[in-house]
Amino acid sequence: MDGDGGNWLTGIGFTTLTCNSSLEIYRSKGDAWSVAFVMSAYFAVLLLFLCLMLYMGAAPNEAQRWKLKIAIWSLLTFLTSMFLYKESELMLWPVPFFFKVI
């Protein structure tokens, strides 16, 4: 977004993300795997938005832009695989078996 138009909306989004993550950690009641999942997803999203911000500000032919593109794709792959693994626990028996084998 141009100028200051998106700053307040981005702030609301990150505040909501932080509140939801904090509440989920609180509701996990000490389950270490759930806390690790929420914390890693939270920091991966923060890193993703930082990399996107740096990518948009980089010069078009800069080598840093290529490295940021690799970081963005890696973070997106990490987040997608994490959520697919967590979602596979709710599926019927062939889907969780497939993810446990891999």
Results as ranks from 00 to 15, higher is better:
31 D>S: 04
101 V>Q: 08
94 P>Y: 03
20 N>Y: 07
37 F>D: 01
45 V>D: 03
35 V>E: 15
43 F>H: 10
65 R>M: 09
26 Y>N: 07
89 E>W: 03
81 S>L: 09
82 M>I: 00
42 Y>S: 08
36 A>Q: 14
17 L>D: 03
3 G>C: 11
74 S>L: 10
7 N>F: 13
98 F>D: 10
45 V>C: 12
53 M>D: 05
81 S>Y: 02
21 S>G: 06
4 D>S: 12
101 V>L: 12
3 G>L: 11
90 L>Y: 05
80 T>A: 13
13 G>V: 06
95 V>P: 05
34 S>I: 06
23 L>C: 07
45 V>Y: 05
47 L>S: 13
70 I>V: 12
2 D>R: 02
59 A>W: 13
102 I>A: 05
51 C>H: 08
18 T>P: 00
45 V>A: 04
72 I>P: 08
63 A>S: 11
8 W>D: 15
62 E>C: 15
88 S>R: 02
38 V>W: 05
19 C>R: 10
75 L>E: 05
88 S>Y: 01
97 F>T: 06
42 Y>K: 08
91 M>H: 11
3 G>M: 10
33 W>F: 08
15 T>P: 01
27 R>W: 02
52 L>S: 11
66 W>F: 10
7 N>E: 15
79 L>T: 01
88 S>N: 02
71 A>K: 02
62 E>I: 02
9 L>F: 08
49 F>D: 13
41 A>G: 06
12 I>Y: 11
18 T>S: 14
63 A>G: 05
28 S>D: 10
80 T>I: 14
3 G>P: 00
46 L>R: 13
79 L>V: 03
41 A>C: 11
44 A>L: 09
24 E>S: 13
13 G>P: 00
85 Y>Q: 03
38 V>E: 08
78 F>P: 03
2 D>H: 10
89 E>V: 01
62 E>W: 13
98 F>E: 08
64 Q>C: 10
17 L>K: 06
60 P>A: 02
12 I>K: 14
62 E>Q: 14
48 L>A: 03
29 K>D: 09
90 L>C: 07
23 L>G: 04
100 K>V: 00
35 V>S: 13
14 F>W: 06
81 S>I: 06
54 L>Q: 11
31 D>W: 04
99 F>T: 06
5 G>P: 04
42 Y>L: 15
100 K>R: 15
101 V>P: 01
44 A>I: 01
74 S>K: 03
51 C>K: 01
3 G>E: 09
7 N>G: 10
42 Y>R: 04
78 F>L: 11
35 V>N: 12
39 M>R: 05
53 M>K: 13
77 T>H: 00
21 S>C: 10
55 Y>M: 06
55 Y>Q: 09
24 E>T: 12
60 P>I: 05
59 A>F: 07
77 T>D: 12
42 Y>T: 07
95 V>D: 02
31 D>G: 03
13 G>A: 11
100 K>F: 01
57 G>M: 15
21 S>R: 01
9 L>M: 09
50 L>S: 12
